[in-house]
């Protein structure tokens, strides 16, 4: 199994994308898309990516839900800042925070979540000291932001990846 399908998750996503693009689930398309998916995911082995190991998939729906809630909430917050700039004294700035997450895919997912949420922006990650640099649009309390990111995302990501 492992020899024929080196990256099952990638191959499956490629097949799914092929079927969505062709908007059909006819046997011919499944065979064709399967062949493309196998070839493309086979080519991936040449890059020798680090193995993705999910320790647990149960926190994924919870993570997804909290990301969607946060995106909606911060969309409203940023829209308010843009539309009513004179409402209050707003300070934006960089926050440097240490994280305990070590898995590189976990860090990548955390980067995407933080940047996709309006109002927070991942700028840099330092692998040696495991600290990251985040730019926050509405910086009220630095410690509060660090605690928020740690509690809402990092704990769940560590459950998933480590």
């Amino acid at each position: 199994m492992k020899r024929f399908i080196p990256h099952p998750l990638l191959a499956f996503s490629l097949l799914l994308m092929w079927l969505l693009l062709n908007q059909s689930v006819s046997p011919g398309q499944i065979v064709l898309g399967g062949a493309v998916a196998l070839l493309a995911s086979g080519a991936m082995t040449a890059l020798k990516p680090e193995k993705v190991q999910l320790r647990s998939v149960r926190p994924i729906p919870r993570l997804l839900a909290s990301v969607i809630v946060d995106i909606v909430r911060s969309n409203i917050a940023v829209a308010r800042i843009v539309l009513f700039p004179a409402q209050k004294d707003r300070v934006s700035g960089f926050v440097r925070m240490p994280i305990d997450l070590r898995n590189q895919y976990g860090v990548a997912v955390l980067a995407c979540i933080i940047t996709a949420t309006p109002g927070t922006m991942w700028v840099q990650f330092d692998r040696k000291s495991n600290s990251l640099l985040v730019h926050v649009l509405d910086l009220i309390d630095e410690q509060e932001w660090i605690a928020l990111i740690k509690r809402r995302y990092e704990a769940l990501l560590m459950e998933i990846f480590e």
């Binding site: 995106i71 969309n75 940047t115 949420t117 309006p118 109002g119 922006m121």
Partner: peptide, 10 residues
Amino acid sequence: VHSPTLGTTL
């Protein structure tokens, strides 16, 4: 940099 993410998410 923050503001275009409104358009790309919601």
